[in-house]
Nucleic acid binder design. Structure first.
Lengths: 236, 236
DNA sequence: TTCCCGATAGTCGTATGATGACTTGATGAG
DNA sequence: CTCATCAAGTCATCATACGACTATCGGGAA
């Protein structure tokens, strides 16, 4: 038999991944009627149980619509759940969609600036300890873009927690996941690394001083810089 | 035969609803091992197919964790997907959780203020026509709290669209759904209706003038008033 | 012709039983 | 006491069957 790697990832998820990819990439255009369940069974070599669970996953992402008696069809893009990381990342990748990138950056700006303010107001001493430890680590990782990027990501995660609002965390998560890849790109350039670190220090100081306005301002500058970097990275 | 209304809502959803309710309400505490699939089958009088799909729904909400060979257990609350309306609404209802309400209001405040600014910047003439039409309808519905509430909701929806950011729409949606119920409560009091209408008019004027700062300010005042109302409604 | 209605085939929804894979806890040897 | 092995319990997947719903097509009536 084939020594196929069968599975931490369950079959329905694998099938859903492939279908999701095909839909988001446009291989299955909007309004396309999907093959019937039985046909998908033979195409993917799985049982109907698996196909059905896969389809449910697609439905939960808003990608397809299932109608009893009729069939399954690809829903218009406006219905897709942009908060699903796979959908978001896929759309960003396949369409040359700079508008979407702009939207992502905008959301990030809106929320994270407020997060900085809230964190400044609500941070505990423990939060501060964590942030400062991360700054030290970042300082030490100035020569290692990947390590720095990981720490950078964690810095923002800690800050998000310090804002003490679970909803904000959940909302920002998919966006953050996408931006992580972006940070990976911009941080590759050593110059922006030290600039970035300086921004984080300012931010941390403001949070330490519980100065909301300054914290928000620091975050705003930090984000503007990031957006400039990422736009440059993409264009150039 | 019984004229039981059997069915737009599929069986898996019905079962998931009940289990979700039990989990969120605390009837099935965190870390509880759920009954086995077979047992749930007899308990709900459905097949394993249905039970399995129901469980998948719960998994997608982050409520339960399924481990192959072991069993299914209720995950800690921190893992629950607060962006799922059912979970959000349920938690709000069952725990006497004023912190969560505060978080919801906070998120709404953060996002919708920005939305007002963006809408002022990006609104089209068509957006404006819709908003003004809604204002007229609201004026006419000042005596009908329910009708007014529906129009109120739509006003904010149109404004959200005018901000031209799909991600923002998706993010705010679950929160908005919850707040809709809240608006239903606060708007029952005639006094707050005319106050509310005045706020909407100011907001609409600022958007019409494409005055971002004023739009944000108007939205802020509107929201603060709403929060005051809802807190009063709950306490008193 | 046009419209309505019933038949029919196609598709999804649900039920059922069987088999494989994984986990856990007990058993027994060292 | 430790550790390997085994057995029972549970989820994962498969295969098949039947019920419910929809859309389409064709025939009959206005």
């Amino acid at each position: 038999m084939s020594s196929e790697r069968v599975a931490v990832r369950r079959l329905p998820e694998q099938v859903a991944d492939q279908l999701c990819e095909q839909i988001v990439s446009g291989a299955l255009p909007v309004d396309t009627v999907l093959p019937t369940e039985s046909e998908l069974c033979v195409r993917f070599g799985v049982s109907r149980t698996v196909v059905r669970e896969a389809v449910r996953l697609l439905v939960s992402k808003g990608l397809v619509e299932v109608r009893h008696g009729s069939g399954m069809r690809v829903r218009p893009q406006a219905m897709w759940d942009l908060l699903d990381p796979q959908v978001l990342f896929g759309r960003l990748q396949h369409e040359r969609n700079f508008d979407l990138l702009a939207e992502i950056l905008e959301v990030r700006r809106i929320i994270e600036i407020e997060v900085a303010g809230l964190a400044a107001r609500r941070r505990t001493d423990e939060d501060l300890v964590q942030l400062r430890a991360l700054l030290v680590a970042m300082q030490a990782a100035l020569h290692d873009a990947d390590a720095y990027t990981a720490l950078d990501y964690e810095f923002h995660a800690v800050l998000l927690c310090a804002a003490r609002n679970r909803l904000l965390i959940d909302m920002l998560q998919p966006v953050a996941e996408v931006l992580r890849a972006g940070r990976h790109i911009t941080n590759r350039r050593a110059r922006s690394l030290s600039t970035s670190l300086r921004g984080h220090v300012e931010l941390c100081d403001a949070v330490a001083a519980q100065d909301e306005a300054t914290a928000r301002d620091a975050m705003r500058r930090h984000i503007v810089q990031f957006e400039k970097d990422i736009r440059q990275s993409i264009v150039g």
